[in-house]
Design a protein around this nucleic acid. Sequence first.
DNA 1: CCAAAAGTGTTGACAATACACCCATGA
DNA 2: TCATGGGTGTATTGTCAACACTTTTGG
Lengths: 242, 242
Amino acid sequence: MTAGYDPYAFEPFAVTVDLAVFTVRAGALHVLLIRRGQEPYAGAWALPGGFVLPRESAETAARRELAEETGLPEELVAALHLEQLRTYSEPDRDPRMRVVSVAFTALVPDLPEPAPEGGGDAAHARWLAVHDVSELAFDHAVILADARERIGAKLEYTCLATGFCPPEFTLGELQSVYETVWNTTLDRPNFRRKVLATPGFVEAVPGAARLTGGRGKPAALYRPGPATTLHPPLLRPEGSTR
Amino acid sequence: MTAGYDPYAFEPFAVTVDLAVFTVRAGALHVLLIRRGQEPYAGAWALPGGFVLPRESAETAARRELAEETGLPEELVAALHLEQLRTYSEPDRDPRMRVVSVAFTALVPDLPEPAPEGGGDAAHARWLAVHDVSELAFDHAVILADARERIGAKLEYTCLATGFCPPEFTLGELQSVYETVWNTTLDRPNFRRKVLATPGFVEAVPGAARLTGGRGKPAALYRPGPATTLHPPLLRPEGSTR
DNA sequence: CCAAAAGTGTTGACAATACACCCATGA
DNA sequence: TCATGGGTGTATTGTCAACACTTTTGG
């Protein structure tokens, strides 16, 4: 650091956070968006986010904004695994002023009630299939693309796919998470073996189990295990993503 | 984004960049540090870095600061592959004011002249073995640890190990990069096969070659290839990284 | 001729794939 | 009893680690 340290020596920067929150619903990857109510980009879809307050870290701000702007349940937001994606700092990314934005990604299970319909700001929040997302405010389309890329890659060598699942899930549900994000199909017996062979990825819920979308044999239930990384990785087949 | 947009509505944030620049020298991983000349932490070692100017992106600022503060050659700095590591935004990470810092990592070959000894700021820049680094200013020890971790992981599935090598290098040199960063030993025949089996990782320099630290059979020379990712990855053995 | 480093070959253990097959349930 | 999804077994194929061996240089 070279120059002096008068806080007002420089044109002030605003620091914001943006969130790419994903879920898997109806066999498609969805992202949580809000509709902007004011200029610029009024009426356009945007990633949820907002200013980092003077006494907050970026991560704290991200949780606060997520709770405020979307109707996601408090306890879910508090427990959520937030991952820092990247910081976007192009000088003209916001037409009003200099804004540097720290982007985060998060994965949530498909929520019982379809859209977050809390009150206030949450009214403009919606899940949209990433397929159908066309234009976004600011450089959010770039952030979204980067986030998708990252999520897809992370499924290969981390356990975070369970983040898309409810607290207890079947291996079929877990598999469909991979298939949806990667837009591919996997061999069920092999998928099953790989998951179970990785210690700490999932652990069986002891009292037997049942569940399924209707017909078919009831499936055993699993919980996320203590592991965070996948050794060896679960590699996606050649052609995937989109 | 919820609130109004008066640039002065909030206590201003300063945005800085910090750089963890690594090289491999004499069988040890080294990091480029500068000695601080002013409070706070005067006399302490710190990562190079500085303020992002009003019309700069973080990456542009990183290159500028790197050139200014260290004596690294201009053309090297311009061509360098900079990778964004993470943004550090804890409210009290700088005792003077609110500073949000975007951290980058970069890899450079062992430079002919041992330390950057340009002029001015560069006078305080030195390469230190990461082993010997004890205390650093601010939260730079955390940044350094994160950067090491990231570099080690990235060697597994990307081609960036060649960034530690001169423009033309032998497979032995490349192997010792892996061995140094991972603090492990690798089987030479197998390493060789894996590298050559990955299309685009390295390409042979056609006109024969020779080079070596003295005795031994002359080795063929290679250049970095066009590939950026390693499929399949080159996994490090169980116990590594210190 | 010996040490040191580059480069080649071969083998056996293990992992990943593909696919056949059985089980339990709802309609 | 049939369709649907859960779950098991197995053979083939390929990949990877281990290690023996040859080649080319400097002293």
